[in-house]
Design a protein around this nucleic acid. Structure first.
Lengths: 326, 326
DNA sequence: AATCATATGTCAAACGTTTGCTATATTTTT
DNA sequence: AAAAATATAGCAAACGTTTGACATATGATT
């Protein structure tokens, strides 16, 4: 059996209280006692039981991350950064990938409560606001509105859309398409569409907005892109994420459409994978590390003081990463 | 304050035991009592406290995943699949990305113990075997040897190396390079090198093995690949992962080396991202979903019966995904 | 009418910690 | 030399749940 506090106490010839005090550096302890206890802990290879500690009142230092999937490089990198940041702040990360399944998401939300997580960062899209409003732990919405008083962290999506438009308009073109993944007008990411349209409106250009539901499989997406490029190829495309842009590049190459030249292309996200492996893509970069840091720091503030009033929305600036595609 | 079991009991006018019995479907309960209790739980929005439950003896249903990073698409997809599988088996997933930092990994290993996780799946490379042998929970090594009696789950790396060699040898070439990420001869992934060499040896071909340490940054890797392709370009390259192969494709394109033709290229992993977004790459596909399922099912067997004797090594077959690069 | 099985529910101990209170010994201040 | 402050450590209750042992009521079987 694994050693417990009382075993250590017995071996060291002191009370359980004293051992606990040594572990938690609390109260007055003689160096002699401390040494004895430490030796006993070493001898028994003692590991405090966090479960018991939490029950007693200590916090769990657990944080839940609710995202749709890790198959998307964007969420993978984000999760990676959040995990790092959370670890640096002393939290452990439970991942909850809803895979677009509302039932799974609800189960997870409930489970996180049952497991006494101290906070939640979520970007999932399946549940209604009431589900989130009821959650016991503080929540930060990543690129996502949940309920009043649940702060949103996002890139400046509107500016991002504007930047993309400006990039495309550097060329003398006007038949433009935007491929977007999310058509919920309440979603912060929808602001990308608005920013894009905003700039084009000044030039009296009306882009075609093609919305591929977030649940679209790659194959379906491929079909849609092929159809677009074959039947009514535009002169410029703005994709609301880099993976879609990458697919456009592939399809274009297959069809003999050259980028740039025949077609100009701008993506969105600018994750490090794209910068390292697909540098030819021009894209709008979100400051992912900063977004992760901000999310964690806001969450921590809410954990420390649940009543602290935070802003509704934190927007971080984006920038253009110039490749060759536009 | 959030409702607890005793609050429910009080409201329903029964004892705590009875409430617990209702929750756990244990013992004889009148349907009347059950209804009363359920109503009270609903009214108070009661959520059982898993911490208290675990302390009492119930298991935590927590599993830890120790991997180097999520920035690599391979680990991201693997983590995604494992999380799904674990969820389906009733487990929650704590992610522990060591980021190549032995200290972080040791901290995590210790933390997982303290948090009473029921099992660990790990593919991290930083700790010595003793650290893992000491862990309290059962462990499955993914593509990684840790200690005797810790089973390894991997693809058939040797056959994978052989397949890659055979693919390249379909063309009349003999100046071959293998770019590998891990040069630890004890690692299961090193078998890819051996399988590759094995086939080539029959043809009296001695490939150049270039090992880019796993910690290499993309920039350094890019430099190495550029140097290779510029100075002593081979006729064929086998990369031990798809991301490196993707980088080779990019560099080659930049240098005007055409793939296939001037250079034949085979990758390894065949994650779904590659199949969906870089279909032109010929690669050796690991059966990732099966590997995830197998890992979880082995782990569960060990959890249910820690003394169950498992094999040392479970190897799942790989297959060639034919693109245009070879 | 005594016995047994079946329902229904309560008591209190236990899980492994932490902590407020208390007790004693030692040192410092008056 | 008394009072006060400081140092040291133990007792027992508490955290929220589960569960074995026990108590009682009801009905069925002898």
């Amino acid at each position: 059996m694994v050693a417990k506090l009382t075993d250590v106490a017995e071996l060291a010839g002191v009370s359980a209280t004293t051992v606990s005090r040594v572990i938690n550096h609390k109260g007055y302890l003689s160096s002699n006692t401390i040494e004895k206890v430490n030796a006993s802990m070493r001898e028994l290879n003692y590991q405090p039981n966090n479960i018991a500690r939490s029950l007693q009142g200590k916090s769990t230092h657990l944080v839940g991350l609710i995202f749709p999937t890790l198959d998307s490089i964007f969420f993978a990198e984000l999760t990676n950064l959040l995990e790092r940041e959370l670890f640096a702040h002393g939290y452990k990360t439970i991942i909850c990938n809803s895979q677009g399944d509302p039932k799974k998401e609800r189960d997870y939300l409930q489970m996180l409560g049952a497991n006494q997580v101290e906070g939640i960062i979520s970007s999932s899209h399946n549940l209604n606001h009431a589900d989130y409003a009821r959650a016991s732990a503080p929540i930060i919405g990543f690129d996502r509105y949940f309920a009043p008083n649940i702060p949103i962290v996002s890139s400046d999506n509107f500016s991002g859309g504007q930047l993309a438009a400006r990039e495309l308009l550097k060329h003398p073109i006007h038949d433009l398409v935007m491929l977007t993944g999310n058509d919920d007008p309440a979603s912060p990411t929808h602001r990308r569409v608005e920013g894009f349209k905003d700039i084009l409106a000044h030039k009296n250009i009306q882009p075609r907005i093609i919305s591929l539901a977030q649940s679209t499989t790659p194959t379906l997406k491929l079909g849609a892109i092929k159809a677009l490029l074959r039947q009514t190829p535009p002169e410029g495309i703005f994709c609301s994420d880099d993976m879609t842009a990458l697919m456009v590049m592939n399809v274009a190459r297959g069809l003999g459409i050259s980028i740039p030249g025949d077609l100009y292309l701008v993506g969105y996200d600018g994750v490090s994978f794209i910068r390292d492996y697909i540098p030819q893509l021009t894209t709008i970069q979100q400051p992912l590390p900063d977004l992760a840091k901000l999310s964690v720091s806001l969450l921590e503030r809410r954990i420390k003081d649940p009543s602290e009033q935070l802003s509704d929305h934190y927007e971080l600036p984006v920038k253009v990463i110039s490749g060759e595609s536009c």
